[in-house]
Amino acid sequence: MALVLYNYDLDENCYKVRLALSMLTIEHEIVAVNAFPGKEQETPPFLAMNPMGTLPILKDGDLTLFGAEAILAYLSRSQDGSGRWLPADGAGFALSMQWLLFAAGDLSVATRARANALFGTPGDEAALRAGARRAIGAMEDAMTVNGFAGQDWFAGPAPTIADVALFPAFVLSRDFGVDHDEYPALRKWARRFRALPGFLTMPGIPDYH
């Protein structure tokens, strides 16, 4: 039985998983969830899979997973024979985890800023934007310093699922009023990321660049 992704196309956390499924060329089925305006992910059948009522959710046989970063970790460990998307060596693994946790934690303010801007979910717009700016600024610093050492990716010399988890917040930041002008290192990184085999866009990310 194929993997099943419970998906909403405008949700950037779902997009992280769609990216990984495509870039790792993993066969899967997609179930469309009426997240807006239906809030279907907060109904009992979905709460049975994820009590927090968020997307994405991944089912693989008897295994049910929620949270994009955990799903990315599962896909890379169970489906990626090369092992490069989640490195096994100590530093490579820890740096991947650091940025995966950053994506799910510190950077999640960007997801809330975008939801506030696009869907009118509650929140202090100025504070959300300032928080997102700070997290994206931390990413810019990291990639600037990596660039001095000739390192093109967040967690090492090759792309990992950390890059996948970090990509949507930056590339969609114009949706909540944070332009790309001040982030040259991230612009270059995003351009490299877009050139990876299997890359796909989501609504809000232009096909042209």
């Binding site: 332009d179 790309h180 002008d181 040259p184 612009r187 270059k188 351009r191």
Partner: peptide, 15 residues
């Protein structure tokens, strides 16, 4: 308006 190295050939940025 920018460091030269910040604008790769074939790219643009606002300022």
């Amino acid at each position: 308006v920018a460091l030269s190295g910040s604008i790769d050939p074939g790219t643009s940025a606002g300022t």
